[in-house]
């Protein structure tokens, strides 16, 4: 299965660890994850690092998870609107669904996602937590 691949996540380490997307050089629109072609027609982009500050648009608590996240259930997923514009689907950590509210401020943090099995590679990336 693809989750057992040590390599599959590697090519996005930088984007995931540091919230790096891109910005269209023609219209300035920013994207996370990075886009290949801008709706404005622009094809040239500059790397853009996002601040990680944003607002929670919607969220839910996952109780039935895919195999690699089974040991982490329950966990919260949500969609965050970054202050710079893009919307990002991400886990919301350090919180129970019951404590969260649509519209609340969240911030990016570096967290562990899953292990490719008992002896496999560990995968890290960015989640969001309520600002405290």
């Amino acid at each position: 299965m693809f989750e057992e691949s040590a390599v599959i996540r590697w090519r996005k380490y930088t984007d995931r660890y540091r919230l790096i997307g891109n910005a269209c050089k023609a219209c300035g629109e920013t994207y996370y994850p990075a886009k290949e072609q801008c709706p404005c027609g622009g094809k040239e982009f500059a790397a853009q690092q996002f601040s990680g500050k944003g607002r929670l648009l919607t969220f839910t608590e996952v109780k039935a998870a895919p195999e690699v996240f089974e040991s982490k259930t329950p966990y919260v997923i949500g969609i965050v609107k970054l202050d710079e514009g893009p919307k990002v689907g991400a886990q919301i950590c350090d919180a129970n669904a019951g404590d969260l509210k649509i519209g609340q401020r969240v911030e990016a943090v570096f967290r562990k996602f899953y292990a490719s099995g008992e002896t496999g590679v560990l995968h890290y990336g960015t989640k969001f937590r309520p600002v405290f």
Binding site: V109, F110, L122
Partner: peptide, 16 residues
């Protein structure tokens, strides 16, 4: 630690 925290994630936030 949280279920998604380990020495690496702790080190990263301290380093940031």
């Amino acid at each position: 630690p949280g279920k998604d925290e380990d020495t690496a994630t702790i080190a990263v936030e301290a380093a940031r």
